[in-house]
Amino acid sequence: MTTKTLYNKTGRYICGASMPAETKQIQTWLSCTKHNKAFVSKEEKETVERMILNEVKAQTAYPLFYPKAEAPWWQKITAMF
């Protein structure tokens, strides 16, 4: 398959004008998940999560409009022990 064919196929799929065989091919490709054995450490995962969350926060500005409620004083004290 050439890049041009793929471009036409995906374009038709997005517009909902693709042939049933093309739809099936694209949907099968989307469903085909190789079992990824590559180990990713917890720190790496957290870094990625933090990066994306920061971008979401920056774009939606939800911490500004809906700030988190501050923990009551007794919870702060119990957290110390």
């Binding site: 398959m1 890049t3 099968t28």
Partner: peptide, 20 residues
């Protein structure tokens, strides 16, 4: 385009789609 040709397009081959 190079990464699409070498990494994405082979995924559309029948052999690879059969895995799904």
């Amino acid at each position: 385009l190079l990464s699409i040709q070498t990494q994405i397009i082979p995924g559309f081959a029948v052999v690879n789609l059969q895995q799904a």
